[in-house]
Protein backbone atom coordinates (compact mmCIF):
# COMPACT_ATOMS: atom_id res chain seq x y z
CA UNK A 1 0.00 0.00 0.00
CA UNK A 2 1.23 3.47 -0.81
CA UNK A 3 1.85 5.99 1.97
CA UNK A 4 0.36 8.76 -0.13
CA UNK A 5 -1.73 8.30 -3.21
CA UNK A 6 -2.84 11.29 -5.28
CA UNK A 7 -5.43 10.86 -8.00
CA UNK A 8 -6.28 13.66 -10.41
CA UNK A 9 -5.55 16.53 -8.02
CA UNK A 10 -6.18 20.04 -9.34
CA UNK A 11 -6.07 23.21 -7.25
CA UNK A 12 -6.83 26.78 -8.20
CA UNK A 13 -6.92 29.99 -6.17
CA UNK A 14 -8.90 32.99 -7.41
CA UNK A 15 -9.35 31.37 -10.81
CA UNK A 16 -5.60 30.91 -11.13
CA UNK A 17 -4.59 27.30 -11.53
CA UNK A 18 -1.75 26.22 -9.28
CA UNK A 19 -1.74 22.45 -9.79
CA UNK A 20 -3.26 20.55 -12.67
CA UNK A 21 -4.30 16.92 -12.73
CA UNK A 22 -1.59 15.36 -10.60
CA UNK A 23 -1.46 11.58 -10.33
CA UNK A 24 1.22 10.21 -8.04
CA UNK A 25 1.92 7.39 -5.60
CA UNK A 26 4.48 7.72 -2.83
CA UNK A 27 6.09 4.72 -1.20
CA UNK A 28 6.48 4.38 2.53
CA UNK A 29 9.98 4.60 4.01
CA UNK A 30 11.46 6.88 1.37
CA UNK A 31 12.97 10.35 1.47
CA UNK A 32 11.42 12.51 -1.25
CA UNK A 33 12.75 15.82 -2.53
CA UNK A 34 10.03 18.13 -3.84
CA UNK A 35 11.58 20.44 -6.43
CA UNK A 36 10.42 23.17 -8.75
CA UNK A 37 10.66 26.91 -9.37
CA UNK A 38 8.79 29.51 -7.31
CA UNK A 39 5.07 29.22 -7.82
CA UNK A 40 5.37 25.63 -9.02
CA UNK A 41 2.80 24.50 -6.46
CA UNK A 42 5.14 22.82 -3.97
CA UNK A 43 3.47 24.32 -0.91
CA UNK A 44 0.07 23.77 -2.46
CA UNK A 45 0.88 20.09 -2.87
CA UNK A 46 1.74 19.95 0.83
CA UNK A 47 -1.47 21.73 1.78
CA UNK A 48 -3.52 19.33 -0.33
CA UNK A 49 -1.85 16.32 1.26
CA UNK A 50 -2.50 17.81 4.71
CA UNK A 51 -6.16 18.36 3.85
CA UNK A 52 -5.96 22.13 4.27
CA UNK A 53 -7.52 22.90 0.89
CA UNK A 54 -11.20 22.22 0.58
CA UNK A 55 -11.75 23.55 -2.93
CA UNK A 56 -9.65 21.05 -4.84
CA UNK A 57 -10.79 18.40 -7.26
CA UNK A 58 -9.39 14.91 -7.22
CA UNK A 59 -8.50 12.66 -4.34
CA UNK A 60 -5.70 12.28 -1.82
CA UNK A 61 -5.41 9.02 0.08
CA UNK A 62 -3.15 8.58 3.08
CA UNK A 63 -2.33 4.97 3.92
CA UNK A 64 -5.26 4.09 1.67
CA UNK A 65 -7.75 6.23 3.59
CA UNK A 66 -9.15 9.76 3.22
CA UNK A 67 -7.04 12.53 4.78
CA UNK A 68 -9.59 13.20 7.56
CA UNK A 69 -9.10 9.68 8.92
CA UNK A 70 -5.32 9.94 8.89
CA UNK A 71 -4.64 13.46 10.15
CA UNK A 72 -2.77 12.22 13.21
CA UNK A 73 -0.40 10.28 10.99
CA UNK A 74 0.89 13.37 9.22
CA UNK A 75 3.01 16.23 10.46
CA UNK A 76 3.94 19.47 8.80
CA UNK A 77 7.16 21.23 9.73
CA UNK A 78 6.94 24.84 8.53
CA UNK A 79 9.74 27.12 7.37
CA UNK A 80 11.69 28.84 10.11
CA UNK A 81 10.36 32.22 8.99
CA UNK A 82 6.78 31.18 9.65
CA UNK A 83 7.40 30.63 13.35
CA UNK A 84 7.27 33.35 16.01
CA UNK A 85 10.47 32.52 17.87
CA UNK A 86 9.72 35.11 20.55
CA UNK A 87 6.55 33.25 21.55
CA UNK A 88 6.57 32.33 25.25
CA UNK A 89 6.73 28.59 24.64
CA UNK A 90 9.29 26.12 25.93
CA UNK A 91 10.71 23.20 23.96
CA UNK A 92 8.56 20.86 26.04
CA UNK A 93 5.41 22.92 25.32
CA UNK A 94 6.04 22.61 21.59
CA UNK A 95 6.82 18.89 21.63
CA UNK A 96 3.77 18.16 23.79
CA UNK A 97 1.63 19.65 21.01
CA UNK A 98 2.27 16.30 19.30
CA UNK A 99 -0.08 14.73 21.84
CA UNK A 100 -2.96 17.15 21.20
CA UNK A 101 -4.54 15.10 18.38
CA UNK A 102 -4.94 12.19 20.80
CA UNK A 103 -6.86 14.19 23.38
CA UNK A 104 -10.54 15.02 23.63
CA UNK A 105 -11.60 18.59 24.41
CA UNK A 106 -11.79 18.12 28.17
CA UNK A 107 -9.02 15.56 28.54
CA UNK A 108 -5.83 16.66 30.22
CA UNK A 109 -2.32 15.62 29.19
CA UNK A 110 -1.25 12.61 31.24
CA UNK A 111 2.09 11.51 32.62
CA UNK A 112 2.27 9.04 29.75
CA UNK A 113 1.97 11.89 27.24
CA UNK A 114 4.83 13.63 28.99
CA UNK A 115 6.91 10.45 28.89
CA UNK A 116 6.33 10.08 25.16
CA UNK A 117 7.37 13.70 24.63
CA UNK A 118 10.48 13.19 26.73
CA UNK A 119 11.40 10.09 24.77
CA UNK A 120 11.06 12.05 21.52
CA UNK A 121 13.32 14.76 22.94
CA UNK A 122 15.85 12.14 23.95
CA UNK A 123 15.76 10.57 20.49
CA UNK A 124 16.64 13.98 19.08
CA UNK A 125 19.32 14.52 21.73
CA UNK A 126 17.76 17.70 23.11
CA UNK A 127 16.14 16.45 26.33
CA UNK A 128 18.46 18.72 28.33
CA UNK A 129 16.99 21.75 26.55
CA UNK A 130 13.37 21.00 27.39
CA UNK A 131 12.70 24.02 29.60
CA UNK A 132 14.36 26.50 27.25
CA UNK A 133 12.29 29.05 25.41
CA UNK A 134 12.35 28.13 21.71
CA UNK A 135 14.04 31.38 20.65
CA UNK A 136 17.07 30.57 22.81
CA UNK A 137 18.08 27.60 20.66
CA UNK A 138 20.42 27.34 17.70
CA UNK A 139 19.01 26.78 14.20
CA UNK A 140 19.77 23.06 14.25
CA UNK A 141 18.26 22.60 17.70
CA UNK A 142 15.12 24.43 16.57
CA UNK A 143 14.68 21.99 13.68
CA UNK A 144 15.14 19.10 16.09
CA UNK A 145 12.37 20.44 18.30
CA UNK A 146 9.90 20.22 15.46
CA UNK A 147 11.11 16.80 14.38
CA UNK A 148 10.73 15.71 18.03
CA UNK A 149 7.15 16.98 17.96
CA UNK A 150 6.54 14.84 14.89
CA UNK A 151 7.98 11.81 16.70
CA UNK A 152 5.84 12.62 19.71
CA UNK A 153 2.79 12.55 17.45
CA UNK A 154 3.96 9.10 16.28
CA UNK A 155 3.38 10.24 12.73
CA UNK A 156 4.30 8.20 9.65
CA UNK A 157 4.44 11.00 7.13
CA UNK A 158 6.60 14.09 7.55
CA UNK A 159 6.26 17.16 5.35
CA UNK A 160 9.14 19.61 5.71
CA UNK A 161 9.03 23.01 4.05
CA UNK A 162 12.60 24.11 3.24
CA UNK A 163 14.18 22.89 6.48
CA UNK A 164 17.67 24.05 5.45
CA UNK A 165 16.96 27.73 5.02
CA UNK A 166 19.05 29.66 7.53
CA UNK A 167 20.99 26.72 8.98
CA UNK A 168 24.69 26.09 8.49
CA UNK A 169 26.01 23.25 6.35
CA UNK A 170 27.02 21.05 9.30
CA UNK A 171 23.53 21.30 10.76
CA UNK A 172 22.03 20.61 7.36
CA UNK A 173 24.02 17.40 7.09
CA UNK A 174 22.96 16.37 10.59
CA UNK A 175 19.30 16.95 9.79
CA UNK A 176 19.57 14.88 6.61
CA UNK A 177 21.22 12.14 8.65
CA UNK A 178 18.31 12.21 11.10
CA UNK A 179 15.77 12.14 8.26
CA UNK A 180 17.53 9.16 6.67
CA UNK A 181 17.42 7.30 9.97
CA UNK A 182 13.70 8.01 10.16
CA UNK A 183 13.08 6.61 6.67
CA UNK A 184 14.98 3.49 7.72
CA UNK A 185 12.33 3.10 10.40
CA UNK A 186 9.61 3.26 7.76
CA UNK A 187 8.71 6.96 7.90
CA UNK A 188 7.83 8.67 4.64
CA UNK A 189 9.42 12.09 4.35
CA UNK A 190 8.78 14.86 1.83
CA UNK A 191 11.13 17.82 1.75
CA UNK A 192 10.62 20.99 -0.25
CA UNK A 193 14.12 21.84 -1.38
CA UNK A 194 15.83 24.51 -3.44
CA UNK A 195 19.51 23.65 -3.66
CA UNK A 196 19.77 21.37 -6.70
CA UNK A 197 23.44 20.56 -6.06
CA UNK A 198 22.67 18.33 -3.07
CA UNK A 199 19.69 16.46 -4.49
CA UNK A 200 21.63 13.36 -5.49
CA UNK A 201 23.21 12.99 -2.05
CA UNK A 202 20.10 13.67 -0.06
CA UNK A 203 17.01 12.11 -1.60
CA UNK A 204 15.92 8.58 -2.53
CA UNK A 205 13.31 9.99 -4.86
CA UNK A 206 12.42 13.32 -6.40
CA UNK A 207 9.18 15.01 -7.40
CA UNK A 208 9.61 17.70 -10.04
CA UNK A 209 6.74 20.17 -10.23
CA UNK A 210 5.86 23.13 -12.32
CA UNK A 211 2.12 23.56 -11.90
CA UNK A 212 1.82 20.06 -13.22
CA UNK A 213 3.78 16.96 -12.36
CA UNK A 214 6.86 17.07 -14.60
CA UNK A 215 8.38 13.83 -13.36
CA UNK A 216 8.74 11.72 -10.26
CA UNK A 217 10.64 8.59 -9.30
CA UNK A 218 14.07 7.37 -8.19
CA UNK A 219 16.56 10.20 -8.04
CA UNK A 220 19.07 8.49 -10.31
CA UNK A 221 16.55 7.91 -13.05
CA UNK A 222 14.39 11.03 -12.70
CA UNK A 223 16.81 13.78 -11.73
CA UNK A 224 18.09 14.28 -15.27
CA UNK A 225 19.03 17.48 -17.00
CA UNK A 226 16.13 17.09 -19.39
CA UNK A 227 13.56 16.76 -16.59
CA UNK A 228 15.08 19.61 -14.64
CA UNK A 229 14.97 21.87 -17.67
CA UNK A 230 11.34 20.97 -18.23
CA UNK A 231 10.50 21.78 -14.61
CA UNK A 232 12.42 25.04 -14.48
CA UNK A 233 11.74 25.98 -18.11
CA UNK A 234 15.07 27.61 -18.68
CA UNK A 235 14.92 29.51 -15.36
CA UNK A 236 18.07 27.71 -14.28
CA UNK A 237 21.33 29.55 -14.36
CA UNK A 238 24.49 28.05 -15.79
CA UNK A 239 25.77 27.89 -12.25
CA UNK A 240 22.97 25.51 -11.33
CA UNK A 241 23.43 23.40 -14.39
CA UNK A 242 27.11 22.83 -13.83
CA UNK A 243 26.41 21.45 -10.37
CA UNK A 244 24.25 18.70 -11.82
CA UNK A 245 27.05 16.71 -13.42
Amino acid sequence: MNAISIKGLSVSYDRKTVLTNVYMDMEAGKLYGVLGPNGAGKSTLFKAILGLISSNTGQVLINGEPVEEQRKKMVYIPQKGEIDWQFPATVMDVVLMGRYPFKGIFQRLSQEDKNIALQALEDMGIANLRSRQIGELSGGQQQRVFIARALCQQADIFLLDEPFVGVDITTEKKIIEILKQLTDKGKTILVIHHDLSKVKDYFDKVILLNQWLVAYGDTEVTFTEENINRAYRGQLSILHRTTLD
Binding site: L52, R71, V94, Y100, I105, L109
Partner: peptide, 22 residues
Protein backbone atom coordinates in the same frame (compact mmCIF):
# COMPACT_ATOMS: atom_id res chain seq x y z
CA UNK B 1 -8.35 26.92 31.60
CA UNK B 2 -10.44 24.36 29.71
CA UNK B 3 -9.37 25.39 26.22
CA UNK B 4 -5.82 26.33 27.13
CA UNK B 5 -4.34 23.76 24.75
CA UNK B 6 -6.45 24.92 21.83
CA UNK B 7 -5.78 28.58 22.55
CA UNK B 8 -2.04 27.93 22.80
CA UNK B 9 -1.89 25.87 19.60
CA UNK B 10 -4.02 28.21 17.49
CA UNK B 11 -2.18 31.27 18.76
CA UNK B 12 1.30 29.85 18.33
CA UNK B 13 0.88 27.97 15.05
CA UNK B 14 -2.58 28.20 13.48
CA UNK B 15 -1.64 26.17 10.41
CA UNK B 16 -0.21 23.32 12.48
CA UNK B 17 -3.28 23.43 14.70
CA UNK B 18 -5.41 23.04 11.60
CA UNK B 19 -3.46 19.99 10.43
CA UNK B 20 -4.10 18.49 13.87
CA UNK B 21 -7.82 18.83 13.31
CA UNK B 22 -8.28 21.70 15.78
Amino acid sequence: VLFYRYLFATTFQPVIAETMGI
